[in-house]
Computed example of a mutant assay.
Amino acid sequence: MERFTISLDESLARQFDELIKNRGYLNRSEAVRDMLREQLETRRIRSAEAPYCIASLSYVYNHHERDLAARLTSQQHAQHQLNLSTMHVHLNHDDCLETVILRGPTAEVRAFSDSIIAERGVRHGQLNLIPVSLDVEEHDHGVHSHLHSHPNT
Rank of each mutant, 00 (worst) to 15 (best):
R120K: 09
G24H: 03
D34S: 14
I101L: 14
V143E: 15
E2A: 13
L127M: 12
R23H: 09
Q39P: 07
A70Q: 06
R43P: 13
L57H: 05
I101D: 01
H80V: 02
R28D: 05
P131W: 02
R103Q: 13
H63L: 04
C53L: 02
S58L: 08
S29K: 11
G125R: 01
R71K: 08
E41Q: 12
L26R: 10
D9L: 13
A31C: 13
R14T: 02
R37S: 14
F4Y: 14
R3K: 12
H146A: 15
E49P: 06
L12C: 05
V60T: 02
Q75I: 01
Y61P: 00
L57T: 01
T153S: 10
V100L: 12
H141T: 07
I54Y: 04
H148G: 07
H141P: 08
R23Q: 03
Q126Y: 13
D114T: 08
M1Q: 11
H139C: 15
R14G: 03
V132A: 01
S11E: 12
L147H: 15
E10R: 07
S149L: 08
N27S: 01
H93Q: 10
Y61S: 01
L97T: 02
N83R: 13
N62D: 10
E10T: 10
T106D: 01
L127T: 11
T73P: 05
S56H: 15
E30N: 10
N83L: 10
H124G: 09
A13D: 05
A31D: 00
C96W: 04
V132P: 00
Q15R: 11
D94C: 11
G121L: 01
